[in-house]
Nucleic acid binder design. Sequence first.
DNA 1: ACCTGAACACCGTTCAAGT
DNA 2: ACCTGAACACCGTTCAAGT
Lengths: 229, 229
Amino acid sequence: MVIRSGRPRQAREREQAREPEQAKSPESRETKAARAVRKEPPHLTPELIHATALAMVDADGIEGLSMRKLAAALDVNPMSLYHHVPNKAALLLGISQLAVADLRIAPARDDTPWPRQLRQIGHSFRALAHQHSNLIVYLLAHPGFIQREGPLWGALCHTLRRAGLPDAEVGRIGNVLLTFVSGFVLAEINGSLGDLLDSGDAAEIDRGFEAGLDILVAGLAAHGASPAT
Amino acid sequence: MVIRSGRPRQAREREQAREPEQAKSPESRETKAARAVRKEPPHLTPELIHATALAMVDADGIEGLSMRKLAAALDVNPMSLYHHVPNKAALLLGISQLAVADLRIAPARDDTPWPRQLRQIGHSFRALAHQHSNLIVYLLAHPGFIQREGPLWGALCHTLRRAGLPDAEVGRIGNVLLTFVSGFVLAEINGSLGDLLDSGDAAEIDRGFEAGLDILVAGLAAHGASPAT
DNA sequence: ACCTGAACACCGTTCAAGT
DNA sequence: ACCTGAACACCGTTCAAGT
């Protein structure tokens, strides 16, 4: 369970490519440099392992990822991975955190009308789903993806409270909105949505998503939310 | 690891235990009876294989099903299965058809108001999801579960047309409703719903589902559906 | 016609041994 | 401290051989 934060991932990788500023010990930096000169495979780190694994999932789906194939991609013995990642479950947790870090929720601005803010949250989620579609399918089918402490759930609840919903209903309705968006992107990604339509083109799918947001916003207003703000 | 339980399966097995009404040929019935007398393991048939596999998935999840464990449960050599089922993908297709057969959509009655009928469809789907929760998680993550020709999609479109939606919007809005229900039951089954709530009790989850239906029906009315009928 | 054992190419993971 | 080869207990599936 060693997951490093991995916030600005690219910066971190660049940091590794050149000499790291704060190396743990002089020796480790020397050997790292020595290896780089000898053109050996890069030092294994949890960050590199997670990033490579995420790239594999993005490219080939969850089934395309195995400890052994990951090791091959890193040009390393399969067993070496276990010195940096306890097991495959932890690896999947790590790459999911890496992917979720790409989620960009617009900062809560209380001057934008709540329907617009609700739509923005929905679009952010959908954008993330498109970015890591293979992973999202896996994540939605397993618990713990959306967290109560996460920015998405926080923004959602904040907006619903701002729409005038009583406290007792915020969580309830938040779940309704979230499950619609989840279900939609899931069906969209696995192709079900297109199958059920006469014309399964991308624009029609987009219109379906907007229609869903329309209906939910309208229903929310009818349900007791304050119409304006 | 012999799992013999499985709820609705028992009736099905009884049916097979006594003489099937429409046996394929006289010989096959005779040998089946003969074997039963000698207390040999039951004849392998696709039906028995599918029913047993479904029971295993219901009990232990998708990961709990393997060709080898299935064979062990049937007291048979693993390779024998391949004479009745081409491969594991076909097996999963078979058990999903078995499960979907349990879906009971109320017959289309044009005298019940469309909101009530929409809710009924949602409840039918959720009931099925509860009945085979492990399988539904797998099915929702893979394409081809809901079919255009199936009773659920048919009933959904019929009802939306009856609500006065223009043809161009029936498929679009049908997808919205279906993806909400799918996303909800998925999150419900994998525990996400409870995690996000203060009190994750079953009654609160039920209320959330009803709230979702409320909002969608209200939004649909605002969206242009005829209010009554 | 139905079943089976051996075999192949994969998995995740443990562990003792190497440097 | 880091890496590795051998090994174990699993997979799905093929195929030739049995009855």
